[in-house]
Design a protein around this nucleic acid. Sequence first.
DNA 1: ATTTATTTTTAGGCTAGCCTAAACCAGAAA
DNA 2: TTTCTGGTTTAGGCTAGCCTAAAAATAAAT
Lengths: 251, 251
Amino acid sequence: MHASIVGQLKVCLSYRTIQDTVILLFNPLSIDLVHSYTEENYIKTIFKLSANGTQEVNTNAIAEALETRAASVTDMLRKLSAKQLVNYVKYKGVSLTQEGEQVALQVIRKHRLWEVFLLEKLKFSWDEVHEVAEELEHVNSPLLIQRLDEYLGYPKFDPHGDPIPSESGQMMVKKQRLLAELEIAEGGVVVGVNDSQPLFLQYLNKVGISLGSRIRVVDKMAYDHSLEIVLEEEKSLLLSSEVSRNIFLSA
Amino acid sequence: MHASIVGQLKVCLSYRTIQDTVILLFNPLSIDLVHSYTEENYIKTIFKLSANGTQEVNTNAIAEALETRAASVTDMLRKLSAKQLVNYVKYKGVSLTQEGEQVALQVIRKHRLWEVFLLEKLKFSWDEVHEVAEELEHVNSPLLIQRLDEYLGYPKFDPHGDPIPSESGQMMVKKQRLLAELEIAEGGVVVGVNDSQPLFLQYLNKVGISLGSRIRVVDKMAYDHSLEIVLEEEKSLLLSSEVSRNIFLSA
DNA sequence: ATTTATTTTTAGGCTAGCCTAAACCAGAAA
DNA sequence: TTTCTGGTTTAGGCTAGCCTAAAAATAAAT
Ligand SMILES: [Mn+2]
Ligand SMILES: [Mn+2]
Ligand SMILES: [Mn+2]
Ligand SMILES: [Mn+2]
């Protein structure tokens, strides 16, 4: 009952009542007001895997990212395709439509604003925020997000240095370089991480690296691609290749 | 896969590893760590319909409250019964078990804390908070709720005057009287509402009644049970029976 | 004590989202 | 070109949560 009404409203942006006549105003780029928790997670994953919407994404990659099976992904891709949220050609991979991209950006916006809230207001640490934000990002209330943004002072970045998309779905592109790709004697300030998993962030906590840390490359080990660095011009550290491929420095 | 593991862990409160042996510690009053969105809504509804857990609840009452069908309720009651969350005897009604009551109190705690947050921090009005809290209440993170409680300064009441259960599941019982049951010349301070729906709260906004308002009964109309009252000893109002049955005054 | 009305349960069926196993396709290798 | 192989889709089936319609149990009225 409710579901069918929502279904009908999907393509209806607004309506006016003039005397007895209800006039529905449609938009060619129809905007689904609400998507399921699951749909949102698929769309967000496709967005991230396609390097912010530019590349085609494989079924298996989505399955791995969402810890599900390829067959389940195929099911969902057909559903999202029917809803015009993705461009999907069998066997050829998938990409987001304009509309799908906007949905992704809104979910990411919510996720990152909640992360800021958890860190700034509730004193979570940067390795604790992601898991909870993963749930909060699906709460659907435009007013809530608008007020949250205001309350937080319109932050531009989340606790991991990732840019927060605007209400209209614009996201800043950060100029940054992977630590792993610097040459000896080069350096910079840590402006982001490529992995928000607790274990990685806890590792950074342990060795004393956080957003804003100054890092300079002292040596590169040809054997295992590990890096010798100096942190804040005082502490010398040896970072594995794994680690240096997940730290972004200012360009 | 995941589901079955969660299923097994349900009755497991904690575990210890001693050398190669994993010892599981069980509790007779097994505590389900997590329940579905739907299960939580059923349990909360049963709690409220049973006047805080004391009375038996009918299938049809639950169906009406959740805007679903009696057959669906029966399905869920069998499921909740199997999980030991309710005492259910076919055709005889249902009540919460100790465990079910604790689940209800935790959901209500989350709901009301979020309502305080929305009002106090995000400047929502008291008629806007309920709908959003209805979603937020299902986000599952004990740390989140504990920190939120702390951040809000351990509030005791929500924006509608309802008591907030403690972390351990204790809820204050408020001494209060229905405005509809006062006699002429009696009065008191508004300490709660019996209905949190936007339309009712917006009505109260309009006539100027809020928590803390002083009300004195001037006359009672035998015809339709409407009440003539004086608000703050200055403004005279006529309230319908419907309205006076949804306002609580200090006892 | 019967009959009637109401409430509740059962029977059967639907969709969303997931799974495994088998079939299929496309690009690489022979 | 044909064969192999890894990635993808289809086939068929599962559970949660919902539905309608029919049957059964209880409560109310005669
Ligand atoms: Mn998510
Ligand atoms: Mn983040
Ligand atoms: Mn709810
Ligand atoms: Mn409330």
